[in-house]
C-alpha cells in the first residue's frame, strides 16, 4: 500500500525544502525514536541500505528452507515431520513478510526474485552448509535460529516501520523454531551412543558457521556506522555474537555436548565466555560463492521457480478469464 503511485511525491516534497534541512529533520525523528514510514522523506542512502538489508534477509529466509526441507521426507517420526513442515512453512512466510517490507521502499518483487535467482543478491552464508544427518536439523533450529533471534529481536525496534513490524511477526514465530531444535537435540543427547555422537558431530559442524552469522568483527564491518546512526542496527556484530555464546554454551553443557573450541573458557572478571578466533577466510570463501552448497542452493531455487511457472501462469490466466465480461461466456 505504501509505495504504489506515491513514490513520485518524494522528489516533489524535496524540491520545496533543501536536502540538508530534510536530512536534519529525518535524523531528529530517528533520534526521538519515531518510526520512519514508507511515504516519509528519507535519505537515499538510508533507503538503499534498507533495501539491501531487508532483501538479503528475505532471500535468507527463502534459501533457508532448503537445508531443512531436505529432511522432510526422511524425518524419523510423523510428529517430527509435522513439526519440520510447519517450521519450513514459517520460513517461507518470513520471506514473504520481508519481501513486502522491502517493496515499500520502491523495489518490485520481481526485481528481488530476479536478483536472487541470478546469483547477484547475497543471503546468509549459513545456508550454504550441508545437512548430512538428522541431527543437523536439530542443530539448525537450536543454533542457527538461536543466532537469528539474537539478531532479530533488536530489529523489532528498528527505525523503519514496515521492517520493524515484519520482525515482530517473525520473532513471535521464531521461538518455536529454536525450541523444537533444542528439543530434537535433547532427545538425541539422551538417546543411544550413536545418537549422542550424531548430535555432537552436528554441533561440531554448525558451531563456527553459527558464530559467523553475526558478520565480520566490528573492526572490519563496513556498514555498522550508518546503520547504528539510523537506528537500523542497535548492537554491533561482536556484541550480539558474545551474547549468543554466553547464552548457548550453558545449553550445550546441559545437553552433555562439547563446544568445539579448545580456547573456550569462562572469564570470571568480565562475566562472559572467552572464545577462540573465528576463521574469517572460511566466511569470505562462503560469501564469495565457494561454500559447500552455494551452487546447489541457487540451482534448487532456479529449478523451483521454473517448475512453478506453469502454476503462476495458470493462476494469471484464470484471473484474466474471470475479469472478462460474462458475454464471452454466453457466446
Amino acid at each position: 500500500m505504501y509505495t504504489q503511485g506515491l513514490d513520485g511525491q518524494v522528489p516533489d516534497t524535496a524540491a520545496h525544502t533543501d536536502e540538508a534541512t530534510l536530512e536534519q529533520r529525518f535524523l531528529a525523528r530517528v533520534d526521538a525514536e519515531e518510526k520512519i514510514e514508507p511515504k516519509d522523506w528519507m535519505p537515499v542512502r538510508y533507503r538503499n541500505t534498507l533495501i539491501r538489508q531487508i532483501s538479503q534477509h528475505a532471500h535468507s529466509e527463502i534459501v533457508g528452507m532448503l537445508p531443512e526441507g531436505n529432511w522432510i521426507t526422511r524425518a524419523p517420526t510423523l510428529k517430527r515431520k509435522a513439526i519440520l513442515i510447519a517450521k519450513v512453512q514459517d520460513e517461507g512466510g518470513h520471506g514473504a513478510y520481508l519481501y513486502s517490507a522491502a517493496e515499500t521502499l520502491g523495489v518490485s518483487r520481481d526485481q528481488l526474485v530476479e536478483q536472487l535467482l541470478s546469483g547477484k543478491a547475497k543471503y546468509s552464508s549459513i545456508f550454504n552448509y550441508p545437512t548430512p544427518t538428522w541431527a543437523d536439523v536439530g542443530a539448525i533450529g537450536w543454533l542457527v535460529d538461536g543466532a537469528a533471534i539474537m539478531n532479530q529481536i533488536p530489529l523489532c525496534r528498528c527505525s523503519y516501520g514496515p521492517y520493524a513490524r515484519a520482525m515482530v511477526r517473525v520473532c513471535r514465530e521464531e521461538s518455536f523454531h529454536q525450541r523444537q531444535g533444542y528439543d530434537l537435540m535433547l532427545q538425541l543427547a539422551r538417546g543411544s551412543e550413536a545418537q549422542k555422537r550424531m548430535a555432537q558431530e552436528a554441533l561440531n559442524r554448525w558451531w563456527w558457521p553459527a558464530l559467523m552469522m553475526f558478520g565480520p568483527s566490528d573492526a572490519n564491518s563496513t556498514h555498522t556506522g550508518d546503520s547504528q546512526r539510523w537506528k537500523i542496527k542497535r548492537f554491533s556484530n561482536d556484541e550480539l555474537r558474545q551474547k549468543f555464546v554466553d547464552f548457548t554454551v550453558p545449553q550445550a553443557k546441559f545437553l552433555g555436548l562439547a563446544v568445539p573450541d579448545p580456547e573456550l573458557r569462562w572469564d570470571e572478571h568480565r562475566q562472559q565466555y572467552e572464545f577462540g578466533p573465528i576463521d574469517w577466510s572460511e566466511f569470505d570463501q562462503v560469501l564469495k560463492g565457494n561454500g559447500p552448497c552455494n551452487a546447489e542452493r541457487i540451482a534448487a531455487r532456479r529449478n523451483a521457480h521454473a517448475a512453478g511457472a506453469w502454476v503462476r501462469e495458470a493462476a494469471s490466466a484464470y484471473a484474466a478469464k474471470r475479469r472478462q465480461p460474462s458475454a464471452n461466456i454466453a457466446a
Binding site: Y97, S100, E103, R312, A315, S316
Partner: peptide, 11 residues
C-alpha cells in the same frame, strides 16, 4: 496485518 501479491481476490 500485511500485504501480499495474488492474481485475484480469491487467491
Amino acid at each position: 496485518t500485511g500485504s501480499l501479491h495474488a492474481p485475484d481476490a480469491a487467491m
